[in-house]
Amino acid sequence: MTGTVTTSTLTAADRCDRCGAAARVRAVLPGGGELLFCRHHGTKHEAQLRALEATILVEEIDD
């Protein structure tokens, strides 16, 4: 994948798009846009995200 992904750091206010828990995983889609997931849902959807060639970033946040 070429190009640069510019994203802000996750904060305690960022929530999982699936369940509303604290977001720890950011998936940047190749066509634009992003999805935020808790670790559980990030792991659950990792294979599908990789198949879509999403860039997956796992972050630790200070609560």
Score class of each variant (00 low, 15 high):
residue 26 R to L: 11
residue 12 A to I: 08
residue 34 E to K: 11
residue 10 L to K: 11
residue 15 R to E: 09
residue 34 E to G: 04
residue 61 I to Y: 04
residue 28 V to E: 13
residue 42 G to F: 06
residue 33 G to C: 07
residue 61 I to F: 05
residue 48 Q to I: 07
residue 51 A to M: 02
residue 11 T to S: 15
residue 28 V to S: 11
residue 3 G to K: 05
residue 4 T to Y: 08
residue 3 G to W: 00
residue 31 G to A: 15
residue 4 T to C: 05
residue 2 T to D: 01
residue 19 C to R: 09
residue 47 A to N: 08
residue 34 E to P: 00
residue 33 G to Y: 05
residue 62 D to Q: 13
residue 17 D to W: 03
residue 50 R to T: 11
residue 25 V to A: 02
residue 48 Q to S: 11
residue 46 E to L: 14
residue 29 L to P: 00
residue 54 A to H: 05
residue 32 G to R: 09
residue 30 P to F: 08
residue 31 G to N: 12
residue 44 K to M: 15
residue 42 G to W: 07
residue 16 C to P: 07
residue 55 T to R: 13
residue 61 I to M: 09
residue 5 V to D: 06
residue 44 K to C: 10
residue 53 E to F: 02
residue 50 R to H: 07
residue 29 L to D: 00
residue 38 C to R: 10
residue 21 A to C: 10
residue 56 I to R: 09
residue 22 A to D: 03
residue 58 V to A: 08
residue 1 M to S: 14
residue 1 M to P: 04
residue 27 A to Q: 06
residue 63 D to W: 14
residue 35 L to S: 08
residue 57 L to C: 02
residue 20 G to Y: 00
residue 62 D to C: 08
residue 16 C to T: 06
residue 14 D to R: 07
residue 28 V to M: 05
residue 34 E to C: 04
residue 39 R to M: 15
residue 6 T to P: 02
residue 55 T to N: 05
residue 28 V to D: 10
residue 8 S to R: 15
residue 59 E to N: 04
